[in-house]
C-alpha cells in the first residue's frame, strides 16, 4: 500500500518534471526541471530495490551530468533561442503522428498481453545479499579486467577533454 503511494508520487515527479523540461522557455529552467524528473526516476529505482542504480542516478546524473548541462547552457549563447517561437507550426501534424504511433504501441502491447498485468506491481522481496553486494562480487571478482580497463577509458576521457579545450599557446 505504502509502496503504491510512493510509486505514484515518484511517477508524478518524473512526468511533471519531464513536461516542465520541454515547455519552459528558459533553458536554465528546463535544466532545473530535468533535475526534478531525474530525481523521480531515482525514487522509482529505489522502489525496485535497485540501490546501486539509485546511487548512480543521484551522484552521476543529478550531480555530474546536470553540471555538464548547465555548463553547456552557460557556454553557448541562448538569447536568440529564447526569443524565437518555442513550437513550430507543424504541431497539428506532430500531434496526429504521435497519436498514431501511440495507438500502434498500445495495440501491439495489448496483443502481446502485457497490458493485462495488474498495475504497479511491487518488486519481489529481495532475498540474500543486496543489490550492491551482488554487484561488488561480480565487479571485483568475475569482471576484474573490464573494471581495470574502465579506468583506462576514464584516463582517455581526461586526456581528450584537456587537449580539446586547451589552447596551444
Amino acid at each position: 500500500m505504502l509502496d503504491t503511494i510512493f510509486f505514484y508520487v515518484f511517477a508524478l515527479l518524473t512526468i511533471g518534471g519531464a513536461i516542465a523540461t520541454i515547455t519552459r522557455r528558459s533553458a536554465m529552467h528546463s535544466a532545473l526541471s530535468l533535475i526534478v524528473s531525474l530525481l523521480g526516476v531515482a525514487g522509482l529505482y529505489l522502489l525496485q530495490k535497485a540501490e546501486f542504480l539509485f546511487a548512480v542516478q543521484i551522484v552521476l546524473y543529478i550531480g555530474g551530468i546536470m553540471v555538464l548541462f548547465l555548463f553547456v547552457i552557460m557556454l553557448v549563447n541562448l538569447d536568440q533561442a529564447a526569443k524565437e517561437r518555442q513550437f513550430n507550426r507543424q504541431w497539428l501534424l506532430g500531434l496526429v503522428a504521435s497519436v498514431l504511433v501511440g495507438a500502434q504501441m498500445v495495440w501491439m502491447l495489448n496483443s502481446a498481453g502485457v497490458l493485462s498485468l495488474p498495475a504497479a506491481v511491487p518488486a519481489p522481496a529481495a532475498t540474500g545479499p543486496g543489490n550492491i553486494e551482488a554487484l561488488a562480487d561480480l565487479l571485483f571478482r568475475e569482471y576484474l579486467l573490464p573494471f581495470e580497463v574502465a579506468s583506462l577509458l576514464l584516463l582517455v576521457a581526461i586526456v581528450g577533454s584537456v587537449m580539446m579545450a586547451k589552447k596551444t599557446s
Binding site: L60, F71, L75, L139, A150, K166
Partner: peptide
C-alpha cells in the same frame, strides 16, 4: 570552466566505482 566540469564528472564516475 568546462574542463573543470568534465574533470569533475570523470572523478564522479570514479567515486561510483
Amino acid at each position: 570552466f568546462y574542463i573543470v566540469a568534465i574533470l569533475f564528472v570523470i572523478f564522479d564516475v570514479e567515486t561510483i566505482f
